[in-house]
């Protein structure tokens, strides 16, 4: 599979502590990269740098334009240090769930920000898949922490062929056992279909193709 991302010589210093230095790695399309490290090791910071939100990390990050199955990789595909907004989901540490809005409104707005349109049925279906059937029109502030996390995860169950990359920051937080298993399956299926996943988690993902990247002190 062609290379999607190349990071060279990343360096991060916070509060006069060096979180990581000389960190280089590459991610191929269809790969699952599992970033591991203790609390405060800089996993979230690294992910935010990859997505282009953080400026506290020095170094070079190059994103290659994703190649779909039909195309052959041509030399003049645009490379850049920022992502195309169309092609990825970034599930951040802060789940981007507006508490004063219903799960349905939250999902529709997340979709609108990606300039995509889906039928209302598709949104209801995605919410039902993450176990929020019956909660579609309940304000998110009256949901439990795990259910709020599921609202944000519902994005991953929308059928959007344009989205070929997921960046997930601790996606298993607050999920119950079934939710964890379901999300693991979803991640595996996405990778089998050629999607790329870069995730941070303390939870070990049991998948053969997963690649680990350890930052900070060994666990």
């Amino acid at each position: 599979m062609p290379e999607l991302l190349k990071a060279t010589d990343l360096f991060c210093e916070r509060d006069e502590r060096i979180l990581f230095s000389n960190l280089s790695f590459a991610v191929d399309q269809g790969e699952i990269l599992h970033i591991q490290g203790g609390n405060g090791a800089g996993k979230t910071t690294l992910l935010r740098r990859l997505v282009g939100l953080s400026w506290v990390v020095d170094g070079k990050v190059t994103w290659h334009a994703p190649v779909s199955d039909g195309d052959s990789p041509d030399g003049d595909s645009p490379d850049g240090d920022s992502l195309d907004g169309n092609s990825f989901w970034y599930l951040a540490h802060r789940p981007a769930v507006t508490l004063m809005q219903t799960p349905l409104e939250n999902l529709a707005f997340a979709l609108a920000l990606h300039n995509q349109v889906l039928s209302p049925e598709a949104l209801w279906q995605a919410l039902a898949t993450v176990g929020l059937r019956g909660y579609e029109d309940v304000p998110a502030h009256s949901l439990s922490a795990g259910q709020q996390r599921r609202v944000s995860l519902a994005r991953l169950y929308l059928e959007l062929p344009a989205v070929r990359l997921w960046l997930l920051d601790e996606p298993f937080t607050a999920l119950d056992v079934n939710g964890v298993a379901q999300l693991e399956q979803r991640i595996e299926r996405f990778a089998e279909q050629g999607g790329t996943v870069i995730m941070t988690s303390h939870h070990g993902l049991r998948h053969t193709a997963v690649r680990h990247l350890l930052i900070g002190a060994p666990l």
Partner: peptide, 9 residues
């Protein structure tokens, strides 16, 4: 709640 960073992306 993190919506702002999604808006920037």
């Amino acid at each position: 709640d993190g919506t702002l960073e999604q808006m920037l992306l």
